[in-house]
Design a protein around this nucleic acid. Structure first.
Ligand SMILES: [Mg+2]
Length: 324
DNA sequence: AATAATAAACAAG
DNA sequence: CTTGTTTATTATT
């Protein structure tokens, strides 16, 4: 059990995770799953304080430009905690947006200005400013602006006939705090409200790279319906009569990271030849899986022992594996 | 296990 | 169509 304190409240996690076995019928591999402890308290994003603008007072414009280029080079090349090797360099969309906005003298930018900065300054996006493929990364930019509390917008402006949207600014005080247990302003994905799964619509999300397992089984695509006549929509909906709702809202003010934990299991699966072929099943532990109650000054969060396993189980079955 | 990328529904203008 | 929010999934570390 962990106790974590934030500015004004404390809460505990009790068995926010559990260990259990998921056994699938496997002709050749029949070891029971033994999974490690999961769903531990999330760590927090390292804040890059050292990229803050150094406010060069009186420099020649040319020199400033050179400095700016150096900064970008550093941003793309240096590895930081959690950084990935993206097509454009070792920085995240969030990093790019921060760099863009900070490069502006007024320290604020409209969405379109952010796009333009990226296209102008990041090689990878240069030939990609107005093509079909730009739709995807621009979507990601918007996603990141909305998602991260560090990005805040001023009241919307109007420019001529069409709206230019808002000016986006950096507010570091709203970024996730460094270290465990400090006051947190969490990204939206850590702040999901009480929703339940709706099964009448196909899901959205990232597509699987490998669509076929070694068993030859067709893996379910995350967006299996190309048929545009099938209307897709988010497949969750609020449940008004969830008795947890009241507690939920309080709970989420504290932004409990464990509610977004994903976990993987590697159950033995059916393979034709021999093999301990295993598959990773990622599931998101949904909010409603948790049982919450209050005890004194604490909100107690319990993930019922079997819940994660049940979700993994049903997902495995939907992928074509047969349980024992 | 945790973070980040990617896809897409949906709303408002 | 653009801007913005949110959910949901997989990939990468
Ligand atoms: Mg934001």
């Amino acid at each position: 059990m962990e106790i974590v304190s934030s500015d004004d409240q404390e809460f505990q996690i009790q068995e926010a995770c559990s260990t259990s076995h998921l056994t699938f019928k496997a002709p050749s591999a029949r070891n029971p799953l033994i999974r490690q402890r999961s769903g531990t308290f999330a760590g927090f994003t390292e804040i890059e304080g050292n990229r803050t603008a150094g406010t060069p007072a009186k420099q020649e414009i040319k020199e400033e430009e050179l400095q700016e280029k150096e900064k970008i080079k550093k941003l793309l090349n240096e590895r930081r905690k959690f950084s990935r090797q993206n097509k454009w360099g070792n920085c995240s969309y969030k990093d790019l947006i921060v760099a863009a906005i900070e490069s502006s003298p007024s320290k604020k930018m409209t969405l379109n200005e952010i796009y333009e900065w990226i296209v102008k300054n990041i090689q990878y996006f240069k030939n990609d400013s107005d093509t079909n493929s730009s739709v995807a990364w621009k979507n990601s930019v918007r996603h990141n602006l909305s998602l991260h509390p560090i990005f805040q917008k001023e009241p919307p402006q109007t420019g001529g006939s069409r709206s230019i949207g808002s000016y986006w600014k950096i507010d570091r005080s709203k970024d996730r705090a460094k270290g465990r247990g400090r006051a947190k302003t969490l990204p939206m994905q850590d702040l999901q409200s009480a929703r339940v799964r709706r099964t009448d619509k196909p899901p959205t999300g990232r597509k699987s790279k490998s669509k076929v397992t070694k068993t030859g089984q067709q893996r379910r695509d995350s967006t299996p319906y190309n048929d545009s006549s099938i209307k897709k929509s988010s497949h969750t909906a609020m449940v008004d009569d969830n008795p947890m709702n009241e507690l939920n809202s309080e709970f989420f003010k504290m932004g409990h990271p464990s509610t977004v934990a994903t976990s993987s299991v590697r159950p033995p699966i059916a393979v034709p030849d021999d093999g301990d072929e295993q598959v990773t099943i990622q599931v998101r532990v949904p909010y409603e899986a948790f049982r919450l109650y209050r005890e004194g000054n604490y909100n107690i969060c319990i993930l019922p022992k079997n819940h994660r396993e049940l979700r993994q189980y049903s997902k495995a079955v939907s992928m074509g594996y047969s349980p024992v």
